[in-house]
C-alpha cells in the first residue's frame, strides 16, 4: 500500500515570531525553519506503518519555494522513500494546496494520505478536509490512533467531548493530532541515505492547478499586550464591572 504524506516548511516552533514593521507579514529573515510538528507526526505514522509491513512505499510531498526540499529531506531521513516538491514562490493557500495534492494523488494513486491537522504558522486546519472533499474520499481528522486493515482504517479522533471512533473505507485522508505518536530522531545513517533518495520537482502549471490566492491578507499585527488586572472588592462589584465596564455578561 502506498502512503502519501504532506509536509510543510514552517518557522521553527522555538522561534519567537516578529511582525514586520509595515504589517505586511512576519519577519522571516535569518529565522530557523523546520518541518511543521504535526507533519512530523504524519511522517512518523507512515514510517511505523511501513515498519509494520502495512505500507509499502512512502511519498513525502511539500510545496513552496525551492528551499522546501530541505523539509522533504527531513522526511526522507525519518524513513520516507521519495519526495515530490511542487515549487511556487506564490503564497499557497489551503485550497490551492488541496488542489495540488489532489493532482498528485491522481498521479500517485496512494491508498492513504496523512497530513498534519494544521500547520503551526497559519493554523488554518483546512487542507486535509478540503483534500478529502475534492477527492470525494472519507476523512479521519485529529487522529490519535490509526489501525489500518487492507481495505479499511479505524481512526480514533480527538473531539471536544472526548474520543470518537470512525471506520473509513480506503482510500482515505487522515490528519494527525499530537497524541498519535512521538516522532523519532533521524539516525545518522538515515540522514546520509536520505541524500540519495529521489525528489521530483513539479510546478502548479505542470499539475494544471491555478494557485492564485483567493484571500487577501490586509494586515498582520502582534496580538494586543495583555493589560494588568485589578482586584475587586466584592462579588457584586465583579458582576457590575463585567456587565457595565467589560460588557461581557
Amino acid at each position: 500500500m502506498k502512503v502519501l504524506v504532506a509536509v510543510k516548511r514552517v518557522v521553527d516552533y522555538n522561534v519567537k515570531i516578529r511582525v514586520k514593521a509595515d504589517g505586511s507579514g512576519i519577519d522571516t529573515g535569518n529565522v530557523k525553519f523546520s518541518m511543521n510538528p504535526f507533519d512530523e507526526i504524519a511522517v512518523e505514522e507512515a514510517v511505523r506503518l511501513k515498519e509494520a509491513g502495512k505500507a509499502s512505499e512512502i511519498v513525502a510531498v511539500s510545496m513552496g519555494p525551492a528551499i522546501a526540499h530541505e523539509t522533504i529531506r527531513t522526511a526522507l531521513a525519518m524513513g520516507a522513500d521519495r519526495g515530490i516538491l511542487v515549487t511556487s514562490d506564490e503564497e499557497l493557500q489551503p485550497l490551492a494546496v488541496a488542489k495540488l495534492l489532489k493532482a498528485i494523488v491522481e498521479r500517485e494513486a496512494p491508498k492513504l494520505v496523512i497530513l498534519g491537522k494544521q500547520a503551526i504558522d497559519d493554523d488554518a486546519n483546512q487542507t486535509g478536509q478540503m483534500l478529502a472533499a475534492l477527492l470525494g474520499w472519507p476523512q479521519g481528522t485529529f487522529a490519535s490512533k490509526v489501525v489500518l486493515h487492507s481495505d479499511t482504517a479505524e481512526v480514533t479522533r480527538e473531539v471536544d467531548g472526548g474520543l470518537e471512533m470512525v471506520a473509513l473505507t480506503l482510500p482515505a485522508v487522515v490528519t494527525t493530532d499530537l497524541r498519535l505518536n512521538e516522532p523519532r530522531y533521524a539516525s545518522l545513517p538515515n540522514i546520509m541515505k536520505a541524500k540519495k533518495k529521489p525528489i521530483d520537482t513539479l510546478t502548479p502549471a505542470e499539475l494544471g492547478v491555478d494557485v492564485t490566492p483567493r484571500l487577501v491578507t490586509l494586515k498582520v499585527e502582534e496580538p494586543p499586550k495583555r493589560k494588568s488586572g485589578i482586584k475587586v472588592g466584592s462579588v457584586a462589584e465583579l458582576v457590575d464591572r463585567l456587565k457595565n465596564e467589560a460588557k461581557v455578561i
Partner: peptide, 22 residues
C-alpha cells in the same frame, strides 16, 4: 565527498535536537 553542505547542515540540526531534547 559525502560531506556536502546540505548534509552537514542536516547532521548538525539533528544532533542539536537530540542534544537539547534528550
Amino acid at each position: 565527498e559525502e560531506a556536502t553542505p546540505d548534509l552537514v547542515d542536516a547532521v548538525l540540526d539533528e544532533a542539536a535536537r537530540l542534544a537539547a531534547e534528550v
